[in-house]
Design a protein around this nucleic acid. Structure first.
Lengths: 203, 203
DNA sequence: AACTGAAGTGACCACACTGGTCAAAAGAAC
DNA sequence: GTTCTTTTGACCAGTGTGGTCACTTCAGTT
């Protein structure tokens, strides 16, 4: 068989991926330690190099894995008919949060990818999976007539997207530092911000 | 003399601080290399351990330095009489950007500090320099009656602050990847967003 | 030019840790 | 019991570590 990893028990596979993501997100590629990865994953050195042939192959696997994981989740779970951008953004927040519950270091790891790849490179990889994903997610079927007249759509869109990205980062930090955050609390806060943004920018 | 560093030529001192900040922001404390630091700073190993006694002392120096540097700049340069929160936020953006031009890795390094200190610890350190700095910066002398009625002030404040933090992060990324960004362009974009936010949330 | 104290250097150290290997052990299936 | 697959971890040669200190270079004074 080609892919020795996919034959593994899912819990074990996730544990390995999370351990590797954590190590690679804390350190540069060179300084990330395969010893630490196997230790935290609870497997032996030999196994890691059996599943992946080398440290480099492991890193490349994680790279495409993390990009594909988010893109797939968004494509599959997003309600592409929702015309209200605020509802759609909420939808995306929930989807991303769901992925992050499975892979808590995915966001941090993705940021590391940025260090060696330009934004255009990254977009190209995303678009390889789903052509024009960026435009589609935030523009396809969106009803821009909901916005007030005479107002800069680009800026409003950024303000909305940034708001929820920052909220997500804050929650992720709190979760990482041990706090137990209920999904309902997040959903409520998202709704509160949606309401404020609606009052500000919608007709 | 006690502080061997302050006797140095300023350019040299800044070069050392920047080199150390960069190394410590790319790697965990343990994996950050003093060899790399002296290499990039253009000084010898002996000198580094002459200025600071140990790797740990160097790290501690950077920690208080970076916190103090931002706090001092804000306290000294902020117009504390400005009642318009949007103008005040713009003021802060410009001040931070100015500090970052001198120390480009300060923000990234500060994020590393978070990993080992809780948010409350950090606030405590800030407040040691300037009591109640957080409340003062965003609330002292601010005229909240500028806001629309019946709207959540906390949420609006966060939306505004987050918007400009995200903008700052984007600019920092672009600068780090080599782009030459003019200060005027940033100022213009800040103004554009201020206008949009004003239309949305002010009376 | 000669002297002096301070500032700066880099070869050197003992050692921790590296990515990767592979013979042997353990497990699975019959 | 036999055969095949999966897993293990001691082991390797090599790299890089934080820190030292005998030495050189420099700046100032006489």
């Amino acid at each position: 068989m080609k892919d020795r990893l996919s034959n593994l028990d899912e819990k074990k596979r996730i544990k390995i991926i999370n351990s590797a993501m954590e190590e690679f997100s804390r350190n540069t590629y060179q300084k990330a330690s395969t010893n630490k990865i196997v230790e935290k994953a609870g497997i032996s050195k030999g196994s890691l190099f059996n599943y992946f042939q080398s440290k480099e192959k492991l890193y490349e696997y994680l790279e495409t894995f993390s990009i594909r994981e988010i893109a797939d989740a968004v494509v599959k779970k997003l309600d592409w008919e929702e015309p209200d951008i605020l509802q759609r953004i909420k939808n995306i927040v929930i989807i991303k949060l769901d992925v992050c519950r499975k892979y808590p270091h995915l966001i941090e790891f993705s940021k590391r990818i940025y260090e060696n790849k330009s934004i255009d490179d990254l977009k190209a990889i995303y678009e390889e999976f789903v052509p024009n994903i960026y435009e589609k997610v935030y523009y396809e079927n969106i009803d821009f007539s909901l916005f007030k007249e005479d107002i800069e759509i680009n800026e409003i869109m950024n303000i909305m997207i940034w708001t929820f990205e920052k909220m997500g980062e804050n929650y992720l930090n709190r979760i990482k530092s041990g706090e137990r955050v209920k999904i309902d609390a997040i959903s409520n806060e998202v709704d509160r911000y949606i309401e404020v943004l609606r009052k500000g920018f919608y007709r």
